[in-house]
Amino acid sequence: MTTAQAPPNLVGMSGGTLRDAFGRALVELARERDDLVVLDADIAGGTGTHHFRDACPDRFYQFGIAEQNMMAAAGGMASLGLLPVVTTFAVFCLRAVEQARLSIAYSGRKVVIAASHPGLDVGPDGGSAQCFEDLAAFRAIPGMAVLSPADPLEMRAATRAAIEWDGPVYLRTGRSPAPCVTVEGAPFELGRGSVLRDGSDVTLVACGVEVARSLAAAEELEREGISARVVNLHTLAPVDDALLERCSRETRAFVTAEDASIRGGLGSTVAESLARTAPAPIEMIGIDDVFGTSGEPEELAAHYAIDAPAIAAAARRVLVRK
């Protein structure tokens, strides 16, 4: 595979979080461009933007706990040459989806909306805080790029790509320490998925924290003699149709894995794409029509069957359907 990267470095918990990598990346980018401003709704410590607040206090705007005003005001700021990065938790982005739609995307404004604490990753805060619907909601907005990077290293590259992309971007970060699955300096191209592990029997397509779990599932499947390819589909929109089509022709079976609702999220994204190019059986790992509950992220992953054993089991199921 020409697109395969160096083997994944499954070193367990790196200690790094996506949100921390995001906050530090903003500080780096701020040195390069003076149009960058960061908007916060009283959770800078949670979103990682405290790094930016401390480094660039005159470019950090505190909106208070008022996400609707923050989101639409970002559109106004963009109309006068600033590049606003709106930051809050994923679930509170939902509160301002309509502002993102009208005052950012429809208005042709370049704004980056960065959401931390997505999905089960929120953990003990419970069902009200665990947002599974964001990928579906933002993916449905015309022209909105939707990114969900896999690890802190990729987060850094994705933040730069989101800033440089010509259009509005919804960027999922993350709360919990995440294992590293990419390597320093790996190329990141918005809109192009990457093959992290080659395989020929089935393709595991994942985003966010599910990429590491898919790699672990692929290891497990290999012990059974099943060759699983792992695709990191960090960009849900615009989706990499060509890569998915190629994987379909080469492996003829898919498992999608996401810490989000499969209804409108990655599962839907892959199914929509393949239905138009090279249909193949798909098993979808993710949240299916239920709300979350309190618990630690890893135990919740097992509880809601989005952990590595669940992905491996889905691969076995889909192989029967080939």
């Binding site: 005003n69 923050m70 989101m71 639409a72 559109g75 006068l80 502002q99």
Partner: peptide, 19 residues
């Protein structure tokens, strides 16, 4: 501003004043 959802134009104006 693109309008039609009440309240948003006000926030856009605030963003303009800030910018």
């Amino acid at each position: 501003a693109s309008t039609g959802s009440l309240g948003q134009g006000f926030s856009v104006a605030i963003g303009k004043a800030l910018a």
